[in-house]
């Protein structure tokens, strides 16, 4: 679903945000990108969205080499990728329903389809009764759920989340992770950049550690801290043999919480 081959990104001024990164993420995987601030996690997310162009290397997303994708095709690429950010990026002049519907309106979906899809996705994130509220009438957790609903309303193949729990307290963060987990179990590939130790440790999914723009760890079922025998990224489709098994797709490893 996502493949990076020797990707390097050097910003103007010489800052190297990604250094010879190779990574292979399969369909339906849930991958955490972890690392200190400035390590290059967000740059990887931006590269996958074609918000930035790689200086060297090749990036494949949903079967397309996006480093060679003409600019006019980028919007079509983004329709297969949902994005969630730490600052939610909600439009304050639109209600919850309008914010979610906006993602479909701007890609030309018919009004009848928009209505039913918005209802379904608000139900999924537990905001079915708050569709008429404005973002400033919601808590941070609720705003992030709206952001997730907007990212998922078009049923993307991939969901990219850049520090989605960065502004939230631990309890609210768990609620957000339960939604992302549910989305992942529906078959959507989720890639999440995070600093949140507790979340990563609770989920026990694939963890890719990044430091100074390099992949320093790629561990299936890993925690936030490095395991005793880290496994370097192989860049191949087959999972490394010495990793613990992936949790059952139908079973959430997160603590229960009311949403």
């Amino acid at each position: 679903m996502i493949r990076l081959e020797s990707v390097t990104k050097v910003y103007k001024g010489g800052t190297v945000a990604a250094r010879d990164v190779s990574l292979n993420i399969r369909r339906g995987e849930f991958v955490f990108l972890v690392g200190p601030s400035g390590s290059g996690k967000s740059t990887l997310v931006r590269l996958l969205l074609r918000q930035e162009m790689a200086t060297r290397g090749t990036i494949w997303v949903a079967g397309k080499d996006i480093t060679r994708l003409p600019a006019w095709k980028v919007p079509y690429l983004r329709r297969s990728i949902g994005t969630v950010f730490q600052d939610y990026k909600l439009l304050s002049t639109k209600t919850v329903s309008e914010n979610v519907a906006f993602a479909l309106e701007v890609i030309g979906r018919p009004r009848s389809a928009i209505r039913s899809q918005v209802e379904q996705v608000l139900d999924l994130v537990g905001l079915e009764d708050l569709g008429g509220r404005y973002p400033d009438q919601l808590s941070g957790g609720e705003q992030q759920r709206v952001s997730i609903a907007r990212a998922f309303v078009n049923r993307p193949l991939i969901l990219l989340a850049d520090e989605p729990t960065g502004n939230l307290d631990p309890t609210t963060s768990v609620g957000i992770m339960r939604i992302l987990d549910r989305i992942n179990r529906s078959g959507t590939t989720v890639v999440m950049a995070t600093h949140d130790h507790a979340i990563v440790n609770a989920m026990r999914r694939r963890v890719v550690g990044i430091e100074e723009g390099q992949v320093v760890r790629d561990e299936q079922g890993g925690g936030f801290e490095e395991a005793s025998e880290p496994v370097e990224s192989t860049g191949s489709d087959s999972p490394p043999q010495n990793l613990p098994p992936r949790p059952d797709p139908g079973e959430s490893t997160l603590p229960h919480m009311d949403s």
């Binding site: 983004r78 990026k89 701007v106 030309g108």
Partner: peptide, 11 residues
């Protein structure tokens, strides 16, 4: 947001 969710340039 329009750019992020894939609105075409002309749109």
């Amino acid at each position: 947001v329009m750019k992020l969710v894939g609105a075409s340039n002309w749109f």
